[in-house]
Design a protein around this nucleic acid. Structure first.
Lengths: 182, 182
DNA sequence: ACAGCCATGTAACTTGTTACATGATTTT
DNA sequence: AAAATCATGTAACAAGTTACATGGCTGT
């Protein structure tokens, strides 16, 4: 629902056309979450179908401008008012994968952890580098992008710390590996 | 793809039927990510369509058992070998929401932060409580569940710390609110 | 003239998700 | 006998995603 709500929120500020919506969205989220232009149009169609936006065909053959309806504005307000659902969080693929790896025979959970840590570290460093470049001159316009980068960095850090904990818990539970006392 | 891959991984251990697959999945992820039984069957249908599993109709009218094919086993191995894609992470709804809230007029980003922090704190405490109950007797069977809880806790903590940082950045950038010096 | 970007759209598809129907078996 | 659980499935839909087609406009 992120894309749907985001486009709706951007339309609440002022009417816009499709291509504009993609630019605005990407300006605010940086290169982190690119948005395929096709999806903008399919989403706009569905929003119109649901009565949340109105298509204002540019009379002079210009761009196809969409504006928000009262019902749409209501949904935006509701979206901003309600906290993001965290009691029923989206499935965490990594947690599921490791969880299964541990209970399945013939799967080297330790290798998965090491590979993931390397990948997550690389991502963390990349985000940190981008943030350094962004944060040198924190204009108002960049605040949104800065926060998105912060978020990605915090998530990556948490993931790496979690991987460390996984290794520790595995070692604690399974002294049955090679070289028990050595 | 989480459900799809998970079912496939469970079938690699041994052939199973639909209801069993749901139990196994939920045993490993706890109550965190419940799995609708209907989805198990639709997913199995699609896996069969793609040649990754085989339907072994129980000859004596028993349960409908599925077993993995060679191609399916290959995909499981590939899944476990590759790190979870983090350079193109799933959209973070909260980050997007706050990002938009900051650049849109008439939206109280501070209120969103406070509401979200309250919600995330509640979730964090709930998970912590469940983990305390689980961790008292860390049998091998509970390790998977324990790690999932750890993951949820780490994520919630990171989110709360991020919200604090957001507030700090906002205060730093916008001394234009009420009571500038007071 | 040609390359490249701006701009709109459509068709086809994927995974996830739920509501519902159906019957067997087990428990109370 | 009634209620609950086990078990299998189907129909319909949501949201996301991509590949492709089609033009206009701009700079070289």
């Amino acid at each position: 629902m992120s894309v749907r709500h985001s486009l709706l929120a951007l339309l609440q500020e002022r009417p816009r056309y499709g291509y504009q919506l993609r630019s605005e969205f990407q300006d605010r989220t940086g290169a982190a979450w690119p948005l395929n232009i096709g999806q903008v149009y399919t989403t706009l169609e569905r929003l119109e179908r649901d009565g949340l936006v109105r298509k204002e065909s540019g009379a002079d053959g210009g761009q196809v401008v969409y504006s928000i309806t009262d019902e749409g504005a209501g949904q935006v307000d509701a979206w901003f008012s309600a906290p993001v659902e965290r009691s029923n969080p989206p499935r965490n693929e990594l947690a599921i994968k490791l969880s299964l790896a541990l209970s399945l025979p013939g799967v080297d959970a330790g290798a998965i952890i090491r590979a993931q840590r390397a990948a997550s570290l690389a991502v963390l460093q990349e985000h940190t580098k981008v943030r350094r470049d962004t944060a040198t001159n924190p204009r108002k316009a960049d605040l949104a992008l800065l926060l998105v980068l912060d978020s990605l960095i915090f998530q990556a850090e948490a993931e790496i710390r979690w991987l460390d904990l996984c290794e520790a818990r595995m070692a604690q539970l399974a002294p049955s590996g090679n070289a028990a006392g050595r």
